[in-house]
Write a protein that binds this DNA or RNA. Structure first.
Length: 193
DNA sequence: ACGCAGATTTTCT
DNA sequence: GAAAATCTGCGTT
């Protein structure tokens, strides 16, 4: 993958805009070495919009060791562990010290199929936040790292056409699940559920 | 096709 | 001690 990395200023905007804007871009992972590079086009995301969002980990400005990366610079990876066994990947948004992020929920696999299958041993490979992390080798070791350079990065992809982006309620949460902050590509067969 | 329970650990109450 | 931004396997329909 040789595309230009998405710049920090892209992430330093309202989280909902960043979420829509990430659709079509490419997530590239060099975990395990460049030889085992894996990559996928982002087709589904969710916005977690900050201290006022009951579903956001930083709701009410809960600044703890866990949520610290959310307060970091835009374009940082926030990787958290949940349900005792799963990792999930977010891109930190808004200016530094404003704790918000976009959860990457599904990818269309485009490179490194053999590596993905070896890691996952199951289909689908990248439809679901924990599944794509497993397929790309994303773990807590990447928490707090830049998404502009390094082993995990987001590079320019193809912009979806207007009308190709659908909106819906967020998944897997109880508080404010109905806020329409999930965005996905209309005709993608790679979105979760 | 659908529904339910288990896995398993971090974080906060 | 309970819940969590989930996924899987196994049961039943």
């Amino acid at each position: 993958m040789t595309g230009a990395a998405v710049a920090a200023r892209f992430y330093a905007r309202p989280t909902e805009e960043v979420a829509r804007g990430l659709l079509g871009h490419i997530l590239v992972s060099d975990v395990g070495g460049r030889r085992r590079q894996t990559a996928g086009r982002i087709v589904e995301v969710e916005a977690y919009t900050g201290p006022h969002d009951p579903a956001c980990h930083a709701y009410g400005h809960r600044r703890t060791a866990r949520t610290e990366p959310l307060y970091g610079p835009p374009g940082t990876a926030y990787v958290y562990f949940t349900y005792g066994m799963h990792w999930c990947l977010n891109a930190v948004t808004e200016p530094r010290d404003y704790p918000a992020a976009v959860l990457i929920r599904a990818l269309e696999p485009i490179a490194g199929f053999a590596t993905m299958r070896a890691r996952r041993r199951k289909e689908p490979l990248c439809s679901g936040p924990a599944r794509l992390c497993e397929a790309l080798g994303v773990t807590g070791a990447l928490n707090g790292m830049s998404l502009q350079r390094g082993v995990l990065r987001i590079v320019e992809g193809s912009k979806p056409k207007r009308g190709e982006i659908l909106t819906g309620p967020r998944i897997g949460i109880t508080e404010a699940a109905d806020w329409p902050l999930r965005f996905y590509l209309k005709d993608s067969s790679w979105v979760s559920r």
